[in-house]
């Protein structure tokens, strides 16, 4: 079966520094695939290259078998490749509802309409409220994104990604910087995604990784150190040395 997302020899250099080198990955359709590695391993660089916000120095990216390397980020989103950000990147002055309605309108290609007020886009508003309800954000719908507590902002980040109806979802530390109780909420939302949606997520919390991931790729120094099922990764000597810092645990 064609992998949902695949890279071939993906490389990114910043001047003399090779942030990512020769990464070839294949992520199966519908997989819950974790990307782990110590700080500076190149995880976010890889997500930026996959999403298209960064151009590779070499290598290719394929979405469902189709080469998308030259495609701009927004065109990749239109094909179902959607991402979230490690540090919440929201529209501070827009309300929660406005943000999600906008994401839905963008998905539908209706965000450039000028003749009808937003308040009359009732189908999109209903969908947005339903989505916010699922994420327990409905009570915050009228608040500005900048006024939300950080944990709620993380949920809104997820809501924006889900509103785009991803086929492949790239989650860059979706639970970073929020209390454990709320990170469970974030992962509950991710777990509730349709099985057909492919998820690649970066996460530092190993408990969450081993609970949710079906496969794990370990990056270190910009290269793939290991890839496999969670139990294989847990046994992998190189991973324990480089990533977990011990070979004896």
């Amino acid at each position: 079966m064609t992998p949902a997302l695949r890279t071939e020899h993906l490389t990114r250099r910043f001047g003399a520094l090779e942030a990512l080198g020769d990464v070839s990955l294949a992520i199966a359709s519908g997989a819950r695939h974790a990307l782990i590695g110590p700080n500076g391993a190149g995880k976010t660089t890889l997500v930026n290259l996959l999403a298209g916000s960064l151009a590779p120095s070499a290598g290719e990216v394929y979405l469902a078998g189709e080469r998308i390397t030259p495609l701009a980020q927004y065109r990749r989103v239109k094909r179902g490749l959607v991402r979230t950000f490690q540090v919440s990147s929201l529209f501070g002055g827009l309300t929660v509802l406005e943000s999600v309605v906008l994401a839905i309108l963008e998905r539908e290609g209706r965000a450039a309409l000028w003749r009808r007020p937003v308040a009359r886009c009732t189908v999109e508003i209903d969908e947005a409220m339903a989505l916010l309800g699922e994420l327990r954000l409905a009570d915050d719908a009228g608040r500005r994104a900048s006024a939300l507590a950080y944990g709620r902002q993380r949920l809104l980040e997820i809501a924006l990604a889900l509103a785009s109806r991803p086929r492949v979802l790239l989650l860059d530390e979706p639970a970073a910087g929020i209390p454990a109780a709320q990170s469970a909420e974030v992962f509950r939302a991710i777990a509730a995604l349709p099985a057909a949606v492919t998820v690649l997520f970066i996460e530092h919390d190993m408990e969450l990784v081993f609970r949710f991931a079906e496969r794990i790729t370990v990056l270190a120094g910009g290269r793939v150190l290991a890839e496999g099922a969670p139990e294989e990764i847990a046994r992998d000597r190189a991973v324990r040395e480089v990533y977990l810092g011990t070979a004896d645990a």
């Binding site: 999403a51 298209g52 916000s53 701009a72 980020q73 927004y74 989103v77 239109k78 959607v82 991402r83 950000f85 990147s89 929201l90 529209f91 501070g92 002055g93 827009l94 406005e98 943000s99 309605v101 906008l102 994401a103 309108l105 963008e106 998905r107 965000a111 450039a112 937003v118 924006l160 785009s164």
Partner: peptide
């Protein structure tokens, strides 16, 4: 609305497909 969003956070908009 999309213009306001671009003003608020231009870098985020392509990630919505804009």
């Amino acid at each position: 609305l999309s213009l306001r969003a671009i003003r608020e956070n231009r870098a985020r908009m392509p990630a919505l497909g804009a």
